[in-house]
Structures are given as C-alpha cells and as structure tokens.
C-alpha cells in the first residue's frame, strides 16, 4: 500500500509536460486514439459525427479536411471541443488533462504537420 501511494505521489509531481514531442505520430498514438477512437465514439465502426480517428492517416485527413484543425490557429475547433468552450466537451465522459490539450495546441500552433 505504501509503495502504491508513493507511485501516485510520483505521478503527481514528475517532469515537465512540454518535454513530450508535439508530433502527430506521438499525439495520435498517445492521446487521440486511446481517448477519442473508442469503439462507441470515433472508431471506424461507430464513426460518430462521421469522424473516424482510429487510423493515424485517416484521422489527420479528417481533422484537416473538415477544418477541425486549422494549422497555426489556436482557435481551431478541435481545441474548442477539447476545452468545452461553447459546445459539448470532448471526450464527453472524461476530459483530457489540460497538459494534453496544451500539447495538441502546441502541435497546431507549430503548423499541425503530419
């Protein structure tokens, strides 16, 4: 039990979130797919709102083509959805930690490269 508490404390006071790479390959595998591409949401099968995010290529194309992401624009719809700003927040059951949203924001500000 003591080691469990230590692990939780370590998790709460570890390194800088900005140390993670703001690249699409990392963002998709580490944040977008596990949180957004769940089977009843943006998987290929459910395709909620016509958005499929489980494959990195399809996901990137969808976000760009449908203008959820405007490269360089920190007012992109994707960020408004993740922040829950004037619309239903995504993911609707468990929002992303602010540090994850900041990483997505950094990727968009740096040009949203694939």
């Amino acid at each position: 039990m003591r080691s469990f508490i230590v692990l939780i404390l370590v998790a709460g006071c570890a390194g800088d979130p900005a140390s993670r790479p703001a690249t699409w390959s990392y963002l998709h595998a580490a944040i977008i797919a596990p949180n957004c591409a769940t089977s009843s949401c943006h998987s290929q099968r459910a395709a909620t709102a016509g958005v499929v995010l489980d494959d990195p290529d399809t996901a990137y194309q969808t976000l760009i083509d449908r203008q959820y992401v405007l490269p360089g624009d920190d007012g992109s719809t994707l960020l408004l959805l993740l922040d829950g700003d004037e619309r239903r927040r995504m993911p609707p059951d468990a929002p992303l930690p602010a540090a994850d949203i900041d990483l997505v924001r950094r990727w968009i500000e740096e040009g949203a490269k694939k």
């Binding site: 009843s40 395709a47 709102a49 016509g50 239903r88």
Partner: peptide, 23 residues
C-alpha cells in the same frame, strides 16, 4: 450497442463541413 448521444456535434466545425450519421 448502446448510444448515449446523437452522432451530430453540437456545432459543425465549419460552414462547408458535412455531418454524417453512423450507418
């Protein structure tokens, strides 16, 4: 499968975007 929410977003991402429903 269960369905909590409609497939449509509360607002479209842009004026030109289409919203499709799941089959």
């Amino acid at each position: 499968r269960g369905r909590v929410r409609s497939g449509a977003p509360t607002s479209p991402p842009s004026s030109g975007s289409m919203v499709e429903n799941p089959s």
